[in-house]
């Protein structure tokens, strides 16, 4: 008889309690499996549908009607991603810096509130407004600029928020140390705060790009769709992008069209995967000087 479970009563009680423990961990483990499984399932089916029909010409040929390749769509997605990266990146990081470093109490509440509200606006609303205001109202018809602006509106809150959080996460001792050295504000921001927060900011930026790459609703009525390579015209120059064929062609009764849908999905998965891996690598490299457990 073990001393530390002396009475039969205590033994029984403890057995029941340990059983409860086991059940909880079992349920939690199942939950984790239920979280991981769909990822494998989704990505697996995308790959399984794409690989058998994959031809390199999907990357080299443009779409012809509802067949052909996807080269102009791949290019369009990449160009859009770059434009969003620059426009939303500058604006979002700037807004984040202001919110974290300069905003006074009352204005901070207002600005932060607006950012959060904007984050909650469904993307189809942004698409609708982009369409009625830019394409119709300003008579741009469809253009890459309208699309980039719509996407920017969607990812700005995300970038601003991650930037702000990353800057707030910088230990106050770093700042104090720099102030004690007599560094001026701008220098502290650039050399100390931004550098210490860079891992978080870049990760947020890359994830924002991944989100923008996968958007469809705001693009349908701003970029529309094109079988030609993207042009930077403001008026009447629609763009092709990878999410469009999935939405439009997945249930076409023509084989070549469904291939466009499945290959687009494949390319998108690869692109998003590459972005996630990039964000991981970048954040690991940038946070190498941070104290353990941070960044």
């Amino acid at each position: 008889m073990t001393l530390v479970a002396a009475t039969p009563h205590e033994k029984g009680v403890n057995r029941a309690r340990t059983a409860g423990d086991t059940i909880m961990w079992l349920v939690c483990g199942l939950a984790l499996a239920a979280l991981v499984l769909p990822i494998i399932w989704i990505i697996g089916q995308v790959i399984a549908r794409a690989i058998p029909h994959f031809r390199w010409s999907f990357l080299t040929q443009p779409t012809i009607g509802n067949g052909g390749g996807l080269s102009q769509a791949v290019l369009g997605t990449l160009v859009l991603m770059a434009m969003v990266g620059v426009i939303a990146g500058v604006t979002g990081v700037g807004a984040g810096i202001y919110l974290a470093e300069y905003a006074r109490r009352r204005s901070a509440i207002l600005l932060r509130g607006a950012t959060e509200v904007l984050a909650g606006v469904p993307s189809i609303i942004v698409g609708y407004v982009g369409f009625t205001a830019l394409a119709i109202g300003l008579k741009w018809k469809f253009s890459i600029w309208a699309a980039a602006i719509a996407l920017t509106a969607i990812v700005i809150p995300y970038i601003a928020k991650t930037t702000e959080l990353a800057l707030r996460g910088v230990p106050g001792s770093f700042r104090e140390g720099a102030e004690a050295l007599g560094m001026r504000d701008i220098l502290i921001l650039r050399r100390i705060s931004l550098r210490a927060a860079s891992s978080g900011i870049i990760t947020g930026l890359i994830m924002a790009l991944a989100i923008s790459v996968g958007e469809t609703a705001p693009l349908l009525y701003t970029a529309f769709w094109s079988v030609h390579n993207p042009t930077f015209g403001l008026h009447n120059s629609p763009v092709g992008y990878l999410t469009y064929p999935i939405w439009t062609f997945y249930n076409y009764p023509v084989k070549s069209a469904t291939y466009l849908a499945t290959e687009s999905a494949f390319f998108l998965v690869i692109l998003v995967g590459a972005l996630i891996i990039a964000s991981r690598l970048v954040s690991r490299r940038l946070s190498r000087y941070m104290p353990l457990g941070q960044g």
Binding site: T2, A5, R17
Partner: peptide, 20 residues
């Protein structure tokens, strides 16, 4: 040892140990 019982021994009931 807790009295005559090895605290790190096999089959020690951690819950009871910590109660006591």
């Amino acid at each position: 040892r807790f009295y005559d019982q090895d605290v790190y021994g096999q089959g020690v009931d951690l819950l009871s140990l910590r109660r006591r």
